[in-house]
Design a protein around this nucleic acid. Structure first.
Length: 205
DNA sequence: TGCCAGGCCCTCTTTAGGGCCTT
């Protein structure tokens, strides 16, 4: 496995036909923001045609219609480009277990892979923002007073909001620890630490 | 036949159940 650079992240979000690739669900849109040295480097957004119609719930939930997907490139073509975009960066998503299983499923169909590890903004936010009303992406964006002008449940907008939330959480970790940079290893450790022990762990940095 | 996600996390827990998150 090639080494990965903790300063290089890809924050991603999938829109899909449903909740489980094991039940036959497929990706229909990918949006992603590439971060290098703490700043936005580039973006990736593409609809993809899974080869069959999506249901009315998904059309209403995402605003992505069957008409829009009819002219989109296939999942195989889009995911080849996205695999190139990821390079060897670490990957971030809100409720990463969801996006990871779709990324793994789509890439396995085209015999591609990635080297980075996943970080989860949901797991981290549950520890850092224990007073938040809940830990849905939109709620956390409001909780942190992050400017939001777009449509939730579209892939690039959700990836943009997750990016801003992630950067805000890194800033809050820096304030609480005095660190000037937050190692990815610390993020992973925080994300697995019991909530009651978070303040102690931060104070020990 | 009937059912159908799954990982995380809390608690009236651990021989389990249910809410939270993602589409």
């Amino acid at each position: 496995m090639k080494s990965t650079n903790a300063d290089k992240l890809v924050i991603l979000d999938f829109e899909t036909t449903g909740l489980s690739p094991l039940q036959g669900d497929r990706a229909i849109e990918i949006g992603a923001v590439k971060i290098e040295q703490g700043k936005i480097h580039s973006r990736f957004q593409a609809l993809m045609n899974p080869g069959r119609p999506i249901n009315a719930f998904i059309e209403n939930y995402t605003g992505i219609s069957n008409q829009m997907l009819r002219t989109a490139q296939s999942n195989e073509v889009v995911m080849q480009d996205f695999a190139d975009f990821i390079e060897d960066h670490h990957l971030i998503a809100h409720n990463a277990s969801f996006d990871q299983k779709f990324l793994d499923a789509e890439l396995s169909l085209i015999n591609r892979n990635y080297n980075g590890e996943f970080g989860c903004s949901l797991l981290l936010s549950r520890r850092l923002y224990q007073d938040a009303p809940n830990h849905k992406l939109g709620t956390l964006v409001r909780y942190k007073n992050i400017a939001a002008d777009g449509n939730y449940h579209r892939a690039l907008f959700d990836a943009e909001m997750t990016t801003q939330l992630w950067l805000a959480m890194l800033d809050d970790i820096k304030i609480k620890t005095g660190l000037t940079e937050v190692p990815f290893s610390l993020v992973k450790k925080l994300s697995k630490t019991p909530k009651a022990q978070i303040d102690k762990l931060l104070s020990e940095q």
